[in-house]
């Protein structure tokens, strides 16, 4: 079983602050992490490898410093890691990103072998679109299974996999043939504390660098210029001011709160 996991390096959302004066995000000093959903994709792939054998490859598109994310992936049990890094990718929207990742993955396939399961996180916590996974699946023309919460059954002989995925009001279990692409929810698994030999192996495994010249990526489909969507402007939502503290006895507090929200309750037709 060969898994290929797509991971994105993102700023740790918990530490990003907003500069309300300039309307931008302060990213300085904010540590970069693997997109939290993607860590569950790596974990799922490694668990399948542990059970059925094979290997886990990881591909990340990003700036050179994203090699740290890949080092982490190795430490979690990945075997081969690839960093797709080139100026021509800068400013790609999801259409261009899924193209670049698809084309970069061709190189991984060439080096490591055909892929049985592609994995992506459900969503990146910075761009927040949840579109890249579906985009890659479409380009590979493999079945897409989003919002996976359980890998129910893997049958390497029949080359089939059963997955439980989240629906708006419940779950559904689907069966797809491999290769397929799965996007992962946080509840898919618990990230294990990796054994030390994984980390030692990780420290010894190099990150393979890919760019537009050592792959077959067509630069005319990447980057800001070749992305159909453009960002017209970015701004910060108005800051919420710290409000009023309500004090007094329990009865007083609850009465005051009621008085404060009564107009709203009226407007909602609840009073």
């Amino acid at each position: 079983m060969h898994s290929l996991v797509f991971i994105k390096q993102v700023p740790d959302a918990a530490q990003v602050r907003v500069d309300y004066e300039t309307g931008t995000l302060i990213r300085e000093g904010v540590p970069a992490i693997i997109n939290p959903f993607d860590t569950h994709a790596i974990e799922a792939a490694v668990q399948i490898k542990d059970k059925f054998g094979g290997s886990v490859s990881v591909l990340c598109m990003g700036p050179p410093m994203a090699d740290e994310a890949l080092k982490k992936a190795l430490a979690m049990g990945a075997d081969n890691v690839f960093l797709l890094s080139d100026r021509v990718f800068a400013g790609s929207d999801t259409l261009a990103t899924s193209y670049a990742l698809w084309a970069g993955a061709q190189k991984v396939i060439q080096e490591v072998g055909p892929v049985d399961i592609f994995w992506a996180g459900k969503q990146a916590i910075d761009g927040d679109t949840a579109q890249t996974g579906p985009g890659i699946a479409t380009r590979f023309d493999v079945p897409l299974v989003t919002y996976a919460v359980e890998i129910k059954e893997v049958d390497p002989q029949a080359r089939k996999i059963k997955i439980v995925r989240l629906l708006e009001g419940g779950t559904e279990t689907v069966e797809v043939p491999m290769p397929c692409l799965i996007t992962t929810e946080e509840t898919l698994n618990h990230i294990r504390f990796a054994p030390l030999p994984y980390l030692i192996k990780a420290a010894r495994t190099p990150v393979v660098l890919l760019n537009s010249s050592n792959t077959t990526i067509d630069a005319s489909q990447c980057g800001l210029k070749n992305s159909p969507t453009k960002v017209k402007k970015a701004f910060t939502p108005p800051k919420r001011e710290r409000g009023e503290m309500i004090e007094g006895s329990l009865d007083e507090i609850v009465n005051t709160v009621y008085a404060k929200i009564e107009p709203m309750l009226k407007q909602l037709g609840k009073v």
Binding site: F193, A194, P195, L196, P197, L199
Partner: peptide
């Protein structure tokens, strides 16, 4: 001895 599984060096 480290805190990791298989963690002795």
């Amino acid at each position: 001895r480290t805190d990791r599984p298989d963690g002795d060096l």
